[in-house]
Design a protein around this nucleic acid. Structure first.
Lengths: 351, 351
DNA sequence: TTGTACGCGTTATCAG
DNA sequence: CTGATAACGCGTACAA
């Protein structure tokens, strides 16, 4: 056997605080105070230096797990997302990691892959980890049973001293950052109407997906008010992903409606829909205009540039983190994140 | 009796294993064995059931930090990326979380925001957390001093029993998944040459960015072999991001070279470059062809669809995880991830 | 098979 | 200001 030191997983020799104390010739308590200096930084300067020198010499690395035990709290923040590969979620994650880092917290990432069951499972895992707080990101479903279980899980977590916040519909009993899907979609509708469009269609996402629903409803309500209501069969349901937009558009085209502009309830769906339209021989944006929602950064350079509703996802991540960390015990708060309509080439106005 | 003072994540009272044991009327050891049931499940069935029932009744949540202390190892995997908002990294992250989840590990995410200094800082943090292994994702720079420090940090981490792997150039003394940038870029060059293109330019990324360099060199070397060398001034340096591609293209246009096709060393740069070309009045792909690298999923629907080199980022994440977890003590391994040339509309062939 | 008791690395309490 | 020492919650030799 090769006598390699510290090769096998889990058996490396790590200097402990006792080692540091011994090396510095002080007690364990003094070493602890010198290195952490939390409550009372009352350590004589020369001793403090000796300890720090010893720690450096031994390459001391404080054991965060032991600290968690002794302190009764961790420096871990849990982040649960539906799909980290989706730019929407990963950009929010960037905001969360930024804020968490500023607060000195490590982020534990959980990717549910759109499985609500795993969402609950991860709350358990984060509970076991004694994560200080949890941030749940993603639109909710219209599923009373599922929401109830999730709410219970979060409540249990909070009863044990954790704090939580979410991004999405504020229906889980915790503070939330809620995108103003209705208002922004209405704004978008009014802007398109202002451009002269009168015949609209919606590639609308899943029936019980609350975010999709809010966007559909906001859009259609505004148009109804403007006297250009969207016909029922001009709203096609589909999945909330790119392929959903593609399929939804196919379906819409098959219906043979007379449409000037299509609103897809998110950007990637809009792109998928545009591809479907092109495959059907349409010339964009001349033959048909498109609008999306989210303003995904990576899609800034598509052609034609996409009219959409811009939301600041990094900031949403930051705000969710602030809510989670500040959420001491008061009532759950709700922060509304507004969206800005951005008119671009994909909606040049009717011919 | 003894008032349970248990508290870990704040002030909520959490049932401990002792509570469960007492409730079930068994010893702590038995409760531990019944719940963990590691290799030796030597617990009488009725007792085991009593323990499990008690745990369920008390809503027992095992304290992972305490387990880490007692066992001497955690179930945490550290993931360090340059920018989680970048689709390239977030897709790899999806592969890592998938594999980690399958291995029963929690993923701690660290976002360096392209700061090499923070890369080292996070290794320290993960060391403190006693993460079982670390995965470092991102191309390296040609910076001997920086690489040396990083290598030292990783070596220190491994000496203490951690395992590590990376995605990128295998120059840090740990196992790595290395994309075959040179080979794939050469392949791309040959494919473009095969289409009839003869006058090439490269929007080349940063001078000392190893990934950019490998792609530039592979591309140019292949063309030199084919007798269509790329002129020195047809390779413009720029940042490795979208705006870099945009600026690089501006510069390239300013040079007034006679070019048929532009290779940008990654997809987002290619998109930025295309936008710059369009702003200069060019009609794409008729006036100028473009190719990128990575095949970012979100860009599948751009117009014209982008010729690029597809790499399976999710699988790269999986493989990196496998390397990290399997990396017991042997020599660092290197897995080459191949890229597939995908010819699309952006390179229709010369007119 | 079950129980006792010790140890994991730190923090915090309480005397000196 | 410093030093013993008791938790913290759990795993696991060792003993019964």
């Amino acid at each position: 056997m090769t006598p390699t030191r510290g090769s096998a997983a889990g058996n490396g020799r790590v200097a402990t605080l006792s080692d540091v104390a011994r090396e510095a010739g002080v007690s364990l308590a003094t070493a602890s105070r010198a290195i952490n200096g939390s409550t009372n930084r009352s350590v004589r300067e020369d001793l403090r230096e000796r300890v720090l020198a010893a720690a450096a010499k031994l390459d001391y690395s404080p054991n965060a797990n032991a600290q968690a035990m002794a302190r009764g709290r961790t420096a871990t923040l849990g982040l649960i997302v539906h799909d980290i590969a989706d730019p929407f979620f990963s950009t929010i994650a960037a905001g969360v990691t930024e804020a968490a880092d500023a607060a000195g917290l490590a982020v534990t990432l959980a990717n549910t892959e759109h499985d609500p069951e795993r969402e609950i499972g991860f709350i358990q895992t984060l509970q076991n980890l004694r994560a200080r707080s949890i941030i749940l990101v993603g639109g909710r479903q219209d599923d009373d049973e599922g929401n109830r279980r999730l709410r219970d899980a979060l409540a249990g977590y909070q009863e044990r001293g954790g704090t939580a916040a979410m991004v999405g519909q504020p229906i889980l009993g915790v503070s939330a950052v809620h995108v103003d899907n209705r208002g922004a979609s209405a704004e978008l509708a009014r802007a398109l109407h202002g451009l002269g469009y009168r015949r609209f269609a919606v590639v609308g996402g899943p029936e019980n997906h609350l975010t999709a629903r809010e966007r559909r409803e906001g859009f259609c309500a505004a148009l109804a008010e403007l006297g250009s209501p969207v016909a029922d069969d001009a709203v096609v349901p589909c999945a909330f992903v790119r392929d959903g937009g593609y399929d939804g558009m196919k379906e819409l085209l098959a219906r043979g409606l007379d449409v000037e502009v299509v609103f897809a309830v998110n950007d990637v769906m809009a792109l998928g829909a545009m591809t479907a339209a092109r495959e059907a021989g349409l010339d964009l944006p001349r033959d048909l205009a498109f609008a999306g929602f989210d303003d995904i950064t990576a899609l800034r350079d598509v052609t034609p540039t996409l009219t959409t509703v811009a939301i600041d996802m990094v900031d949403i991540g930051r705000q969710a983190t602030a809510l989670a960390l500040g959420d001491g015990g008061g009532e759950p708060q709700v922060v509304i994140a507004s969206g800005d309509v951005v008119l671009r080439e994909s909606t040049p106005g009717p011919r």
